[in-house]
Structure formats: structure tokens, C-alpha cells
Nucleic acid binder design. Sequence first.
DNA 1: GGGGTTGTTTTGATCGATCTAATGGCTACT
DNA 2: AGTAGCCATTAGATCGATCAAAACAACCCC
Lengths: 345, 345
Amino acid sequence: MTRSPLARPRVTITDVARAAAVSRQTVSNAVNNPHRLSPETLERVLATIGDLGYRPQAAAQSLRHQRTGAIGVELGTLGPRRLNETTAPLLAALGVVGAPHDFHVVPFGSSSDEPMIDGYENMWRTRLVDSFIIMDTHHGDPRPQWLEAHGIPFVSFGRVWDDPGFTRWVDVDGAAGTQAATEHLLAGGYRRVGFLGWPEGSLVGDDRWLGWERTVPESHRGPSARVSQNLRAAWTAATELIGRLEPGDALVCASDILALGVHHALLAAGRQVGAEIGLIGFDGSPIAEIHDLSTIAHPIHQAAEALLTLLRGELDAAPPPAQGRLLAPHLVARASTSGPGNTHR
Amino acid sequence: MTRSPLARPRVTITDVARAAAVSRQTVSNAVNNPHRLSPETLERVLATIGDLGYRPQAAAQSLRHQRTGAIGVELGTLGPRRLNETTAPLLAALGVVGAPHDFHVVPFGSSSDEPMIDGYENMWRTRLVDSFIIMDTHHGDPRPQWLEAHGIPFVSFGRVWDDPGFTRWVDVDGAAGTQAATEHLLAGGYRRVGFLGWPEGSLVGDDRWLGWERTVPESHRGPSARVSQNLRAAWTAATELIGRLEPGDALVCASDILALGVHHALLAAGRQVGAEIGLIGFDGSPIAEIHDLSTIAHPIHQAAEALLTLLRGELDAAPPPAQGRLLAPHLVARASTSGPGNTHR
DNA sequence: GGGGTTGTTTTGATCGATCTAATGGCTACT
DNA sequence: AGTAGCCATTAGATCGATCAAAACAACCCC
């Protein structure tokens, strides 16, 4: 029944103090204010810390500092809001990027459509977390206002559309993404570049449309259409659209799902993806990877860094930034944009 | 600069005690041992708790109890082990199911392929978590042994293949899944049912193959093939396979990716999915949903419950169960198994 | 030698909750 | 009346870390 030193009994600051024949405070200083100790003492204490494998306990620090370093992130599991493709990777990135700064993530769920503020309130009141990152904000979203009203620190991944004065957000520059996609296709030798996007009126959708529209020269403009985010709709629209596409033309799509619809329509029409018709999606989803479709991927890692920086400012009561932060997504080139005439592998 | 009661200053047990004119301990008892109080006192204290909106602080409880209720879950972000389709939903389910039992999840990442034990050691030594759920165990996985050796509480989602004596796992019954798929197809009127799976030798793959093999009668057995988990391979194999399929036949696939490959091959061959050839995948992934493919979905919610139950036993030093727990997945019927001759929608 | 500095180390209090043991009030039994 | 027993309540200590302030040592200056 012997247990290794990692297990019980835990190593506390008192153990280290005793072993090094100093006071608890001196051990604490060795860790947090090394300059206060004489070189000899410092060395001895640090050696003892190493020997015993001491690490400060998070719970004790949290209590003392009144800060846990835990960031609440809501995962909409059931109900209308699904776990989307971007959420999970962002969560992972936040975990990795946050660790060195003593931040960690605590996902929590809202099991139903109930006033989901409940989840936030629980996490906050028990101080299981001391800040939040909200995502997928939409018009009429009650969360920003509620959090603000209660003085709860939070930042947003995605602009807060309802409140233009709110600047503690990080978002992906959709227009820059479709612009890069368009340039990539033109540079790759495709003659005309068209666009398949979502119906006008969605802020994200319009943004992505804009990037294409402002980039493609009149002389190289291919046909375009706007349909809803759904495979069947995309397929149907694409079937009509590709009737107007000539070999050497290409399509920029507002999402990987739309691109997939086009992919299927091309397949069914017996036309070749990439060599005959260029095709690129948006979102960097696994779906695009599986189908060997080029796509515009979100800068997840950068977003995580930026969000944490913002959050740290917020927790230290620093003034909010002058404006939100737009990050450029990056291009992932695959077979579907290998260039006209190029038969890929 | 007024702040709402939810924000600073926090409501502590002392505040409640003062307001209700009792001692701190009495407030604590009102919450944890109500039977110890006289009815009048209890009522008064609870009313005060309600008025002030008191909730015990997690950090203080953690320190006192030497238990945080936090469960570490590793998210393999980069490196070889990817964030798979099941991980994210399970994480969400654990969050929801765990909350009422004062459990919460803390995802942490291994940013590289380094000895990833590091991540576990960090989380454990600082007692940021006091247990782990490991997933995606594989042959030669160092984690179970390491955790065991250090006396760290953990349970596994997925059998621990290396150690048959280890019983603190929950897994999905693959054979039951493919059996249900096969029965569904036969009951739906498909004449012959074939199988497309992974090469022999993978434990999960063989399990899924078995469910089909033991269920389909000799007289209704369709052609089968075994290929690697990858769209292109599936597509190629399926192209060959469907040459041997007659209208009214169906295929059970070991994964949604494989089913997708078949779907594409059918599409390219101009054959109709569902009405002509039945098709069902495995894993309940979004990919299947998007393509309107029937699939066998993992019982994520049940798995989360079972894992938490196991974990609670482990934390309370209860003896391990006699054996691991196999959960039956459930069938999600969509257009791809609508029955021979039935044109769906 | 008293007083002032600087530098290192320690003491005591604190964060918020809960455990243990003690206290005071009341009834009941001898 | 004395005391044993029970119930409701409270005082004090504890979990592990850190802050603020005190103590102590060594040195310099007038």
C-alpha cells in the first residue's frame, strides 16, 4: 500500500519550510519574490522545493487571491445552439495557451433552452470561475448586457453586434478570408471566379461576400448565388450555377458546407473538381479536409492568445481597448484549387 | 459605479451569519445538515441565504475538503492525436451531467508530442484537478500505468487494452451497434446486407465487424470488404464493391467516413442511396447528418453518467467494479435506409 | 553610542468554509 | 436538589498560501 511521493500526503509549503529550516513565508518568497532572499537561502530553499517536488496548491492560492484563473465557456450542447466546428478547437487552444498564465478553462453546459443565464450565474456565484468568454453572440443576445450589468469580467469571440461601444472582442476577418481565397484562385490560373454565399442580411455572410466582391476584377467575375447554410440547398443552387461555369472557372464559397454542396453537384455532373473547376470553402472544418477541399481556416491559436490578453486586462481592471481585434484567417490549399488543367495526384 | 449584488463585495458565510444573528457554523449547518437546526432557526437562516443570494465559494470548500471536484480531460490538439468527433460532445455532456454533483471538467492540452504525462503531472500536482478521465487509450499507452502507480484517481472512456484486470472503464458496444444496423436494414426490406469495415486486427474494427457477421443470415449476406479509415480508400473499395451490389441490397459501414466513401461512389455511379442501395454508418457524426446518412450514434449522455458514477466510487475509495461497462449505441435512421424502392422526400 | 539605513527573515492575520469539541438550556429521572 | 441526557448553538482550530508589518542583523554616520 505504499504510495509514490506524487500522491498523498501532499507536499505543502510547511513541509518545505521545515525541511529547509526556514519559515513558510521565506518559501513563498523563494517562489514569488526571489530577489528578497539572500543567494544562499534562495538556493537552499529552491533545492528543497525541487527535492520534495513542491507545487503551490491551486485551491489555497485561489482562496487567498480571490481569483481562480478559471474561465467559464458555455457549450451549447442540446437545444438550438449546437457545438460547432470552431468551438472545440478553440477550447483546446485556450487550454494550451492559458496554462502558462495560470488560466484554465471550465466548460459548462446549458442542458435546455431555459434562460441560459442560469449557467453563468451558477458558475459566477460560486466563483468556480472569475471570468467568461462568450461566443456565437447574436442579435438580442442577453448575455453581454447581463454580464456587464453585474460587473462580471468577460470578453467575446465574435463581435457584439448589439453594442457597437463594446470593444472587448476578437473576431475573424471574413472579408480578408474570401479576399485571400479569390486571390489564390486568380493567381492559380483560374479565369473567372464566382461566389456562393448566404442570403444577404447576415453580418458574417455579407462580410465574406464583400471580400470576394471587392477583390475580383470585373473582367474575371464569375456567376454568384446566395443560399442558406445547408447541403441540399447548396447542391441545388450549385447544379444551376455550374451550368454557367466553364472549364477554368472557380467558385469561392462562404462555408465548407456550401463548398461541399458544390463538390457534390460537380461530381454528379461528371465534372472534375480542381482541374476543371476550382473550389474553395471557408471555416477549415474536418469536412473540408476529408474531401480534400481547399478552405480558409480560422486563426484559432491567435484568437486564443488575443482573448486571453484581453481577459487579463479586464481582470486587472485595465481600460478596454479602443477597438475590437480582427484577425486574418489563413488559406489551406488542397487539391480543389490545384489549378486548371492540373490533375492532382 | 454602483455594482449589483452579484458582484463585489461577495456574500460570504459571515455576512449571512451576521444578518441572521447566528454563528457561521449555524449557517453552514443550515446548508449541509439542516436537521441539526430548530425549524425556526432553519427557516430564518435559509431566508437570509435567499435574500443575500449566498452561495458557498468553491475555492474555500476545495481547500477545506481537499477536493476540488475538477476532472482533468486531456485534449490532444496538435501532434498525432487529434480532437475527434466524440470528444467534444462528451466534454459537453460531462459538464452538464457533472454540475449537479459538484463536478466540473477542466480540459488541458498537450501542445506537442512530448512525454504528454507532463500535462497530467502539472494538473495533479497543483491539485487543479483531483481526478482524470482518459480517452482514446491505445496499446502501449503509458497513462494508465503511470496514473495507477501514483495513486491518482482516474477512469477510462474506452477499454484499457493492455490491462485486462483494469475495470474502471466505460465503452461503447460496437458489435451491438452493427447488429442493430443490420437488423434495421433487414427489417426495412433490404434483401442482402454487406459490410465495409477496417482491416482485421483493430479491436474496435473487429468488434464492429462481429456484430454484422453474427447477425446477418447466410442467405442474406452481401459482399464485404475491409479498408483503412479514409475517404479515398473507402471510395475506391466501394466502387469495386457496388459493382457486386444489386438494387435492394444494403451496406453496413464501420464508420461514417467509410459510409461517406460509399455514398460518393454510389453518387458517381449514378445509383440512388436509400431507395436503391441501403447505407448506414457508425459514430453519429455531423458528417452523417449533413449527408442524410443513417448511422449508429454513441450514447454520449449515458457514457458521461457512467463515467461520473465510476469516478465518484474511485474518489471515495470504493472497490473497483467487477467488470467494465459496455453501453449500447443507438440507431439514427435517415434517408439512406428508407427502404428499397422508397423515394425519400 | 544613539539614531538611521538597508537587507533578510519571521510573526500574525487573512481568505471562506467546515470539522471537532465545548457550551448552555432544557427535560427527566432518581 | 442533583445529575444524566439530549438538543441547539457556538467557539476555536484547520485546510495552504500570501500580505502586511514587525523583528532582527549588519552597517554607516555624526
